[in-house]
Amino acid sequence: MDVFMKGLSKAKEGVVAAAEKTKQGVAEAAGKTKEGVLYVGSKTKEGVVHGVATVAEKTKEQVTNVGGAVVTGVTAVAQKTVEGAGSIAAATGFVKKDQLGKNEEGAPQEGILEDMPVDPDNEAYEMPSEEGYQDYEPEA
């Protein structure tokens, strides 16, 4: 019985440690998101679009440190934060509304985080759909 109880105690310690790591990862992701939003706020009209992409990228980098179902929630929060940063930029006159959601080359930025393969159960990952990809044929 002692062996059984000791095993359960060790398992509990492992769960607590994993929860603490997840909590730490979420806190880091939130900190990076805040950094990115402050970065966007300090940019001029020309830099705002690039700044919004930076927020998304920093958040995406930190999301990889967070495991399990938390990833889905962090990704949703990050996307809403990026959308909010863009709205703030438009409201303050840093950028025109028609410039939001495009990178410096004018290509749409939507789907940055949505296409990231995420499995809350950590069982399997699927690649994003290939609808947006084109076949590449090298020139002879």
Rank of each mutant, 00 (worst) to 15 (best):
P120C: 05
K80Q: 04
E110P: 13
V95Y: 15
V66G: 03
Y133E: 05
V49Q: 07
G86Q: 15
K23G: 03
Q79P: 01
E83R: 08
G132L: 10
H50P: 01
V63E: 00
E131V: 11
V82S: 07
G73Q: 10
V74A: 04
Q79V: 08
T54P: 01
D98L: 11
I112G: 13
Y133G: 11
E35M: 14
E137V: 08
K12I: 02
E20D: 06
K12M: 03
V3Y: 03
A78S: 05
V63C: 14
T81H: 06
K21Y: 12
V40L: 14
K23R: 12
P108G: 03
A17Y: 04
V26I: 05
G73D: 02
T44Q: 00
V71D: 01
T64M: 03
S129H: 07
A69F: 13
K21I: 09
G7C: 11
G47H: 10
V71Y: 15
T64F: 13
M127N: 08
Q79W: 10
G93L: 15
N103E: 09
A107M: 04
L100P: 14
M5R: 05
Y133I: 01
K43C: 09
K23P: 00
V63A: 09
E139L: 09
G86K: 10
D2P: 13
N103A: 03
V82L: 06
K58Y: 09
P108Y: 10
E20L: 14
G84T: 12
V63H: 01
D98I: 07
E20H: 14
A107D: 08
L8Y: 02
G86W: 05
Q24V: 09
V26D: 00
L113K: 14
G86V: 12
V55R: 01
T59G: 08
K45H: 01
A27G: 09
V63L: 08
A78P: 02
L100T: 08
A19F: 14
Y125L: 08
K12C: 05
L113P: 07
E123W: 09
Q109V: 07
M127G: 06
A11S: 08
V37Q: 00
A140C: 13
A90T: 15
A69N: 09
A107N: 07
A29R: 03
L8F: 03
V66Y: 10
M1Y: 00
P138S: 08
G51S: 04
V55M: 11
E46P: 02
K60M: 14
